[in-house]
Design a protein around this nucleic acid. Structure first.
Lengths: 120, 120
DNA sequence: TCAATATCTGAGCATACGCTCAGATATTTG
DNA sequence: CAAATATCTGAGCGTATGCTCAGATATTGA
């Protein structure tokens, strides 16, 4: 993942526009941009978005989710792991089944916001 | 890009949880999830996020952006093309230089929203 | 016109990622 | 315990992606 082999970065020559401190608050450090990018990356996959959509209103077990997405339970399980790692979902075990639900309400707002935006 | 080689998708057996119509409005079609994923993917890269951060308050020319990010103008140009394709930035030519600015205020709100969220 | 600057672009490379496949683990049931 | 079910996991494959590099284009100025 780390793509940091010390870039050469030419010295710029266009004189008139290089204020020492960039405008508009701290210019987003590399580390902060990294975390932010990782967060958006979790939402950048159609399958994960459809999982979030299915979990929007109520919890679902894995095989339920796989059935609705018409994909394999393995694929769903892999994606749920990503959502778990990003702390976007939590789970509850009940017998053999594992029920997932959305963890972060903030993400739900984000999802609805963007969905509405793209619907124009 | 299209990963649609007709998935096998096993018939689920867990009986108790398969309502015919999923809950919570339309379950996000594959096409809609695709577009939504592509939108988030644009924001899933640290370099593009730092560009957006730099353009948050005022426009900048390419070499200016490259200088602030300590990277090459080529890399910045490539990323600006992605932002342009996503209609997130517009540009204005002035002599040799090209000045970029944010196009969509909606994205700025999203950016600030998530940044604040991750800052805890 | 020629040199310098600013930006763009395509090819190629290294890495990241999502899926399939095979198999492991855990729980229920006969 | 053994079979079936529900989920998880690692390996491997094909594709996507961001960068570098070399070069093209465009504009300015001597």
């Amino acid at each position: 993942m780390p793509r940091a082999p010390a870039r050469p970065a030419r010295e710029p020559v266009c004189e008139e526009h290089h204020p020492a401190s960039p405008p508009g608050g701290p210019p987003l450090s590399v580390a902060e941009a990294q975390r932010m990018g990782e967060f958006f990356a979790v939402l950048a996959d159609p399958t994960r978005l459809r999982l979030i959509a299915l979990l929007e209103k109520e919890e679902h077990c894995v095989c339920d989710l796989a059935a609705h997405l018409a994909t394999t339970e393995s694929a769903v399980s892999h994606q749920l792991r990503a959502l778990r790692a990003a702390r976007l979902v939590t789970y509850r075990k009940e017998g053999r089944q594992v029920f997932y639900q959305l963890h972060d309400h903030h993400v739900l707002g984000l999802y609805r916001n963007v969905r509405e935006h793209l619907a124009e």
